[in-house]
Design a binder for these strands. Structure first.
Lengths: 247, 247
DNA sequence: CGGTGTCGGTGCGGTAGCGTACGTTCAGGT
DNA sequence: ACCTGAACGTACGCTACCGCACCGACACCG
């Protein structure tokens, strides 16, 4: 549709599409810029494996990355989701270097890559970058906490609504490319459960989907259908990271 | 039993019982000491209400604090658990000042209280204290992430085992005072569910309980009964915070 | 000593989601 | 044009857990 109009040329990302990068003051920004490298993020690409040492951090612009925990028996569950509002690889500056979870590209796009050692060095200047990253980390913590609550108390249908909303919030349009099987992996439920819930949402006219292509038709109704978890996390992100500057 | 021998007098806490405080170098420690105040932590006491501004942080010594999310309909779920290995109130130095969750004393004891403004100031010296707190925060993140996974995939019985293990890890003995009703609130399940699982564990000889008094009889078997989540979190805490110094 | 409230045990119908299995529809390749 | 495989639909028995209701046991208190 209007995608081409919205994204001139082949939509080469600009760093400022990432909200964290956009919020940096000029001086911090200048130092960082030299080390940034734009990288393609194909669907399914694994940025970090569980327990592996991280060498880079990533600032997504158009890509969406899922933080996923994979259990011994192969079952999985999404811990959090990171798009152009955030950064992948917080454990680098938090001090642990690794995490027990996996970072995998959930929606193809692009991200800026920065060497971990350099970001760490910048982080410990204890300036605006540090404050920004810490605030983001707190927002991420809220998201994880709410995921725990949601997993405990809410139905698959509610969780699907939340997940769809969180995803399109991180994309330029109201469409996303994602099979029901993949969504099931993220939510940690059966594929059939997603089929059923998605079918229900389609019948209600909230979404339409077709072979891995999902369009959100009625965003407001979808919000009404979701559990409170979506709103709680969104409000907390807006509160902690009000710097929703030039996209 | 040997409790009296282990805890001379009425067990007045010493600051170094908290692992984070114990790990501080002398200089940091000296600055902090003047601002610390030992506080009793009665069962059920609410340290922070969801969304309220935090004025202090707490370093538990003998108390255990639960980070609990309470939903609109009154249902609840534990997000994480903090004992003498940690600190309550990370959002103060992370930058958000508040969180959408509640901190409530799950096991009575004591904690050292420090004014938030002072801790924040110390944190931004970007020295050992900062590094320590950030590492702890990452460990906490792992705990929350694993809670999300556990809520998704594991049975009440497995979760109960995990919860018991995490609790006694933070206490000097293998006993804890906790009704099944309270445990149910923490796990976000029905009281009857806890009754059933606890009864099973008792029949197996892993624990014994009586009117709010639980004794872990066979720790190893309990670990074997728990899901992998317990071990994952424990290993991550040990890795990130190896400073398990003088208790 | 008996009353009252907390704590725990049990039972029963209802249901969301699981595991499994098998079908259908569509896209893309040779 | 056909074949293959990916994506989605449907159905069935099963289990864990919920909501509710009720009851017994013990502890503390007047």
């Amino acid at each position: 549709m209007g995608d081409i109009a919205n994204q001139p040329a082949i939509a080469a990302s600009t760093p400022r599409q990432n909200h964290l990068l956009a919020a940096l003051p000029p001086k911090e920004w200048d130092r960082l810029q030299a080390y940034m490298e734009l990288r393609p993020m194909p669907l399914g690409h694994v940025l970090y494996e569980s327990g592996s040492t991280m060498r880079h951090v990533y600032f997504p612009t158009t890509a969406i990355v899922s933080l996923l925990y994979v259990m011994e028996d192969g079952a999985s569950a999404e811990i959090a989701i990171v798009g152009n509002e955030g950064i992948v690889g917080i454990s680098l500056f938090m001090g642990g270097e690794t995490t027990p979870s996996r970072a995998v590209v959930q929606s193809a796009g692009q991200a800026y890559r920065v060497p971990g050692s350099f970001l760490k060095q910048e982080f410990f200047r204890a300036g605006p970058l540090q404050r920004l990253l810490l605030r983001y980390t707190q927002a991420l913590i809220t998201q994880m906490a709410q995921t725990a609550v949601c997993n405990r108390h809410h139905t698959v249908e509610q969780q699907l609504c939340r997940w769809l909303l969180m995803s399109i919030d991180r994309l330029p349009s109201n469409e996303l490319t994602m099979t029901q099987e993949l969504i099931a992996n993220m939510l940690g439920v059966r594929r059939e459960g997603v089929t059923e819930s998605a079918g229900k949402l389609q019948k209600l006219g909230l979404i339409s989907y077709n072979r891995g292509h999902i369009v959100v038709l009625d965003r407001e109704a979808l919000e009404a259908h979701a559990c409170e978890c979506y709103a709680v996390v969104k409000m907390e992100f807006d509160r902690l990271l009000p710097i929703t500057m030039a996209q």
